[in-house]
Nucleic acid binder design. Structure first.
Lengths: 194, 194
DNA sequence: GGTGGACGATAACATATGTTATTAAGTCAG
DNA sequence: CTGACTTAATAACATATGTTATCGTCCACC
């Protein structure tokens, strides 16, 4: 959720490598909780292999906020930065290999990064990227029907549809599993008479 | 949308004051476009008086993304940072007094700010704040019905309901004006037999 | 080889929300 | 004052989505 800049700003990779020794490698099964709802985030999590979701509990019903895959970083950002209880939990969907970087080292890394040339611009761009993601999710809810949102997912991020069980996707789209099933069958029908 | 830190980080006010001479004061009527959709954002906008909205056009129908009031800053963040066309437009709702700070000075100010002690932590907190706002908007759509979202607005940000015309609020909640009207009358009925 | 659980499809019905049209009140320029 | 315009409420109907229940398939586990 913060700095998966490895591909975007290659000149920063040296910093990442420098902090590798402080990262703890973990090999975990599916449905492993990496951060509990209500706990304060203590680690920045990097995914080497597998698939992870960010979700919260609403009256016993789980609502999925975001999915993460290989070479992406996850953290409950607000909790991580401000040392407050996390509104969301983080859980593996598939068996996964992850690296945990304790917060103190992550902060230390950022302090070092700030001494880099052009870091202000890079930092702004990184945050613009994250913020744009959430603004677009938000806009999509104002603008699109659940069916359009699912079609979008199919077109823009098909790997999610392929790898993630349907009930997680339903909660991410903001509909019931029953209705997502209806949407899928409606789309399938539309495609039969081609 | 970026640094309305005046109240949050008072030690940074000196920087703000230093750049005051580069800001252009404007006194504008209601329904003035401050940034057109598709144009590249060139200014950071600070609101001294009045009320402003961020919105986009969807097949001739306007969808409101956010409202801004006194002592808040507005910009189309992604466009401002990455020099790309803005997905959204910015328009005054009420007659307003605003200050425009050209982008070059805003960037320059950030570069200077970076030399401040503890700036990394402050910057992270500022961004966590903005990001949390959008994540919460997003979560609210997954979790709540339009009626709950309106009740939330009434409780958490009543000034919006008081100052903003209803059709803007409807487009912000993601419903039609007709349905918002229904929601209001339903709430009113609920309150009559107290 | 069975068995229980997770996952997904579907049906029937209830509720929420959109669409279109009509009416009324408020505002503002002439 | 009057007419045009904006804003808001309401009704009638159409469509989308939720709820509950049932069924079938797949798969890990005993």
């Amino acid at each position: 959720m913060l700095f998966h800049f490895s591909n975007r700003f290659p000149q920063l990779n040296a910093f990442w490598d420098k902090y590798l020794p402080f990262q703890k490698r973990m090999d975990v099964p599916a449905k492993t909780i990496l951060l509990e709802e209500g706990k304060i985030s203590q680690n920045y999590i990097f995914i080497e292999k597998g698939c992870v979701r960010l979700f919260f509990n609403n009256n016993g019903e789980e609502k999925t906020v975001q999915f993460f895959f290989e070479n992406e970083g996850v953290t409950s950002f607000d909790s991580f930065v401000n040392n407050i209880p996390s509104q969301c939990a983080i859980e593996t969907i598939e068996p996964a290999v992850i690296y945990m970087l304790p917060k103190q080292y992550a902060i230390q890394m950022i302090e070092e990064l700030m001494l880099e040339r052009d870091f202000a611009q890079m930092m702004l761009q990184m945050f613009a990227l994250r913020q744009t993601h959430y603004v677009n999710e938000f806009i999509s809810f104002i603008r699109d029907t659940p069916e359009q949102r699912y079609q979008n997912l199919l077109k823009e991020r098909p790997h999610i549809v392929q790898r993630v069980p349907q009930h997680y996707i339903a909660s991410y789209l903001g509909v019931t599993t029953v209705h997502l099933s209806r949407i899928k069958s409606k789309i399938a029908k539309g495609k039969t008479h081609f």
